[in-house]
Amino acid sequence: RLIESLSQMLSMGFSDEGGWLTRLLQTKNYDIGAALDTIQ
């Protein structure tokens, strides 16, 4: 599930440099909407 969510976020133009996006998705239970809300 992480790989699916991460690949979708990467395709939106986000980077996972340093693993920050992986950690964010894990804390949000791989919910892309919740991750995007946090980023904004």
Rank of each mutant, 00 (worst) to 15 (best):
I32N: 02
F14G: 02
N29L: 11
Q8A: 12
G13W: 09
Q26W: 03
S5Y: 03
L6A: 01
G13S: 05
R23K: 12
L36S: 05
L36K: 04
L2H: 10
W20R: 04
T38Y: 15
S11D: 09
L2I: 07
D31K: 00
M12L: 10
S5V: 15
S7L: 12
I32M: 06
L25D: 04
T22F: 02
W20A: 05
I3N: 12
T22Q: 08
E4D: 10
Q26H: 01
E4M: 12
Q8N: 08
T27P: 03
Y30L: 07
G19N: 06
T38N: 10
D37G: 12
G19F: 07
A35K: 03
D31R: 01
L21K: 00
G19W: 01
D16Q: 05
T38A: 14
G18T: 07
S7T: 12
L36F: 09
L21S: 00
L36I: 12
L21M: 11
R1N: 08
W20S: 03
I39Y: 06
L24Y: 02
S11A: 13
G18C: 14
L6W: 05
G33T: 13
A35I: 10
L6Q: 00
L25V: 02
D37F: 13
S15K: 11
Q40V: 09
L24I: 07
S5H: 03
I3W: 14
F14I: 05
D37R: 12
S15Y: 10
L36Q: 01
S15H: 12
Y30P: 04
T38D: 11
D16R: 00
N29V: 07
I3P: 07
S7G: 09
E4Q: 11
T27W: 11
M12E: 04
L24K: 00
L24N: 00
I39L: 09
T27Y: 14
L25Y: 02
G19C: 12
S7F: 13
D31G: 03
I3R: 15
T38M: 13
L10R: 05
E4K: 11
R23N: 11
L10W: 06
I39V: 07
T27F: 11
G18S: 08
Q40E: 12
Y30F: 09
I39S: 04
S15I: 12
L24D: 02
N29S: 10
S11I: 13
R1G: 11
I32Y: 05
R23I: 14
E17F: 04
L36V: 05
S11K: 14
G33M: 14
L25H: 00
N29I: 08
G18V: 02
L2E: 10
T27N: 15
Q8V: 15
S5L: 13
G19E: 08
R1F: 11
T27C: 15
S15F: 08
S15L: 06
D31W: 09
R1D: 13
I39H: 04
E17A: 10
E17L: 11
S7A: 14
L24H: 01
Q40G: 13
S11G: 05
S7V: 07
L10H: 06
S15N: 13
I3Y: 14
Q40T: 10
L24E: 03
S15D: 15
W20N: 01
G19I: 00
Q26K: 14
W20M: 01
E17R: 08
G18W: 07
L2D: 08
G13L: 06
E17Y: 12
G33Q: 15
L21I: 05
G33I: 14
R1A: 09
L2M: 08
Q40S: 13
G33P: 10
S11E: 12
L6D: 00
R23T: 14
D31L: 08
L6G: 00
A34R: 09
T27G: 11
M9G: 01
I3H: 15
Q8W: 11
W20I: 02
K28L: 15
K28H: 15
A34E: 10
G19R: 04
T38Q: 14
F14E: 01
G33L: 10
T38F: 15
I32W: 12
T27K: 14
L36N: 03
R23F: 13
L25R: 00
L6M: 09
G19M: 07
I3D: 14
I3V: 14
A35M: 05
T38H: 15
A34H: 09
L6P: 00
D31Y: 06
A34D: 09
D16I: 06
G13N: 05
K28S: 11
E17T: 09
F14L: 07
K28Q: 12
Y30E: 02
L10Q: 09
Q26Y: 07
L2F: 08
A34V: 08
M12K: 01
L6F: 06
M9D: 00
G19H: 04
D37N: 11
A34G: 09
I32S: 01
I32V: 14
A34Y: 05
L21N: 01
Q40H: 13
Q40N: 15
E17H: 09
L6R: 03
T22E: 05
L10F: 12
M9C: 12
G13V: 07
R1E: 07
Q8G: 06
S5W: 10
T27L: 14
A35V: 15
E17N: 12
D16E: 05
M12V: 03
T38L: 10
E17D: 12
Q26G: 08
L10I: 09
T22N: 07
M9S: 00
I39M: 06
T27D: 15
T22G: 04
F14T: 03
W20F: 07
S5E: 05
T27H: 14
F14S: 02
R23A: 12
I3S: 08
N29R: 05
M12I: 08
L6I: 10
Q40P: 02
S11F: 08
T38R: 06
L21E: 02
L36R: 03
Q26D: 07
S7Y: 13
S11W: 10
M12S: 05
L10V: 11
I39A: 04
S7K: 15
A35S: 08
S7P: 02
Q8T: 13
L10K: 11
G33W: 13
I39K: 00
T38E: 14
Q8Y: 14
Q26L: 13
R23L: 13
G18R: 07
M9A: 03
M9Q: 00
D16S: 03
M9N: 00
L36M: 09
T27V: 11
M9T: 01
G13H: 06
F14Q: 02
E17W: 10
S11P: 01
N29K: 10
N29Q: 09
M9V: 02
E4T: 08
G13T: 03
I32G: 00
D31T: 02
R23S: 06
I32T: 06
L10E: 08
R1T: 13
M12P: 00
L10Y: 11
S7W: 10
N29P: 05
M12D: 02
M9I: 07
L25K: 02
I32K: 04
T38I: 14
K28Y: 11
A34M: 09
E17I: 12
I39Q: 01
S5I: 09
L2W: 09
Y30W: 07
M12W: 09
I39F: 05
Q40R: 11
D16G: 01
T22R: 11
I3K: 14
K28D: 03
W20V: 06
E17P: 08
Y30H: 06
I32E: 02
A34P: 05
E4Y: 09
D16T: 04
G18F: 11
S11R: 11
R23M: 13
L10T: 06
I39T: 04
K28P: 06
G33D: 13
T27M: 15
I3F: 13
G33E: 14
S7D: 11
S15G: 06
E4V: 10
Y30S: 05
D31A: 07
M9H: 01
Q40D: 10
K28V: 15
M9Y: 02
S11N: 09
T27A: 13
G13C: 08
R1Y: 09
G33Y: 15
G13P: 01
Q26P: 00
L25A: 01
L25M: 01
Q26V: 14
K28I: 12
G19D: 07
D37S: 14
R23Y: 04
M12N: 04
